[in-house]
Design a protein around this nucleic acid. Structure first.
Lengths: 229, 229
DNA sequence: ATCTCAAATATTGTGTCTAATGTTTGATGC
DNA sequence: GCATCAAACATTAGACACAATATTTGAGAT
């Protein structure tokens, strides 16, 4: 039972299918592959220099996330995507994140609050410099902490699937986002400090809505929508 | 052409992995496999008389639905499940179904309304007899119609994933459900007739909440929860 | 001699690949 | 147009490499 040391294996190889899924998500949400297009197993496999098995596995996962549709015996098609669709995803995300923040407000410990303050403090410092990768990580950690406070597994899971619709590097790239985000975060922290569930829900909901609006604008420019009106 | 039938129980029309996924969902939500248990690929494959490939595919899909978790190189574990978890899933389901009903109320056509009335009429007739399989189908169709009126793809998709937490044959088996359902449905129809979004949202939300409460009660008896408190 | 503990070895089971099978689509000939 | 056939491709099976865990073995300490 003795710990065999925490020899950190830095080279922990991620699952191939995970990488493929991330790759395809990115390609879809950046408009490189259009809605209605077929994603051919063999084609993708060849492109990445792997066999079809992990590609198929990735596509099955992506189907579960709503990015592609499976036509049995025919193949995987990129799902239609409209402005309203993305707004809807963020509506769900905002509702659930709000609920989680609300629950967190009633049970959060002083220690957890301090932890959040530390994270936000580091974020605020990075604000001046432009280290967007670390900003991403800290931002993610900030939300992860809040969402884990109430231990609402299923809500957290729903939230996680909604979050996937935002490209990984999105938040670092959007001008003006870091600043708006900072103010939003402080409003959330304030509500948590006061143990005010309604305020926590409201401020978190508003925060996610802000993000969603920016993403829609961003995707607008990329022109990823399937149809226009 | 036709395989020399060994003990072939699985039909060939649907995808194997689909059937496996449904099979495992059912086993999880009926308490036959407990949270924390490993689902071994080969074991499941042998049990169903198929190879491991579609089993793995089904488990990947189930991971996307939150039923199991993947520990890389270790295996698939049945996710924890508490009473609160199921309540949360139904909360999300109720919110989204309410939103979809609300949207439907503002755009539904007379023709679509008449269609719904027909479906509900058939449901009401079956109420006296006990043809639960057909009841299931009609009930499903009733909701499907409403959810498709507003063409909100992503919301409908979220809803679909939440719905999977109810065992397929659940509604037919619960005593008193068909009657309560009938009243709920008529309230929804009434709201749609009046083109009243708020009433549609409210009545649909209540309907789903009713169903959720019954399912929780049902699962309580089965004892599927991972821990008690 | 017995116990402790770690290195060596065996076992189990996933992750990926290759190959066989079946289905769909589109072209070709009638 | 309609049947037939071939190519393309998804789907399933089977095989194997390798990682994670369990078991055994053996050296050193008591």
């Amino acid at each position: 039972m003795v710990a065999h040391g925490r020899d950190v294996k830095l080279r922990r190889r991620p699952q191939l299918s995970e990488e493929v899924a991330a790759h395809l998500r990115e390609r879809i949400m950046s408009g490189q592959v259009r809605p209605g297009e077929y994603l051919r197993l063999e084609h993708v496999a060849e492109e990445l220099g792997i066999s079809v098995t992990p590609v198929r596995e990735a596509l099955v996962a992506l189907r579960g996330e709503g990015f592609v549709q499976l036509q049995p015996r025919r193949g995987f098609i990129v799902s239609p995507l409209s402005r309203v669709d993305v707004q809807d995803v963020f509506r769900v995300q905002a509702d659930i994140a709000g609920e989680l923040a609300s629950r967190a407000a009633t049970v959060i410990t002083d220690e957890q609050l301090e932890n959040l303050e530390t994270i936000q403090g580091q974020l605020d410092m990075l604000h001046t410099t432009g280290a967007s990768v670390e900003q991403e990580a800290l931002n993610h950690e900030f939300h992860r902490q809040i969402n884990s406070v109430s231990e609402s597994r299923k809500l957290a899971w729903f939230l996680a699937t909604a979050v996937r619709y935002a490209p990984l590097s999105f938040y670092g790239e959007i001008h003006g986002w870091t600043r708006a985000s900072r103010e939003d975060h402080h409003a959330v922290l304030d509500a948590l400090h006061k143990r005010d569930p309604d305020a926590a829900r409201f401020s978190m909901h508003r925060h996610i809505t802000h993000a969603g609006d920016l993403l829609v604008e961003h995707l607008d420019k990329l022109g990823v929508w399937s149809e226009e009106s």
